[in-house]
Nucleic acid binder design. Structure first.
Lengths: 113, 113
DNA sequence: TCGACAATTAAACAATTATTTAAATATTTG
DNA sequence: CAAATATTTAAATAATTGTTTAATTGTCGA
């Protein structure tokens, strides 16, 4: 995760419709949801949803996969984790902190195992 | 943390100057930095900095304290943590996940102690 | 209290971002 | 292959956000 990608991710999440869409997908699990279902759930027009999903996908916070004539979108958990790590990086100037030094995802996986 | 405040925080971070200012403050530790030092470090005009710090402060990601004729800004670590928790909330539909279920900050503190 | 410095506020302008309606693409089913 | 459905793309408009220059507020030290 670098500055530019973090910025892109944050910008993608910094809008009501996209934030809600992302949260619905995060909570929906790896299978995700079809675009139409999301549009219904968020109560927005298909073009508006498409516009916003594009932003999330471009930031790699979500992924799309076509299945029949539906397109399923799902959250990219790794990307979300990378963003969180970026934000907490070198927190507090290296001093003791609420959260352990955010390192690589690998390190966190090990820590949590 | 609720949707509206998360959105406000994300919007505050979703801009190059503000993200960089926030990161500098996160890494500067609790004492923070005077506005002028930040402006110099970010190479922007004082009004531009003021405009952006206002956004971060309004989202409560940073705090200001006056000291003599300087105003020191510092990161609010709790606010940052709350945002992170909000993003990972109910991740993966409750299934096993990269990160343990994000609960209250209290719970995380206990977990990390 | 005057002059200098630190920072903010105001106002005008520039740039970016979101929403809408209409048209297009792709996929399934009859 | 034609009709129907799911979704995207395009184009126009509306709304929001960032930048700049100039003026203002507040604090310190001579």
């Amino acid at each position: 995760m670098n500055r530019a990608r973090a910025l892109q991710s944050l910008a993608a999440l910094a809008q009501a419709t996209r934030l809600e869409a992302f949260r619905v997908l995060v909570q929906a699990g790896p299978e995700g949801l079809a675009a139409g279902d999301l549009a219904a759930r968020l109560d927005i027009t298909p073009p508006a949803l498409s516009f916003h999903l594009r932003g999330l996908a471009h930031a790699r916070l979500i992924q799309a996969r076509q299945q029949g004539r539906f397109i399923y979108y799902s959250a990219d958990y790794d990307a979300m984790q990378s963003l969180v790590d970026f934000l907490t990086e070198n927190c507090c100037g290296g001093a003791a902190c609420l959260r352990p030094q955010a390192g690589s995802r690998r390190a966190n996986r090990r820590r949590l195992a």
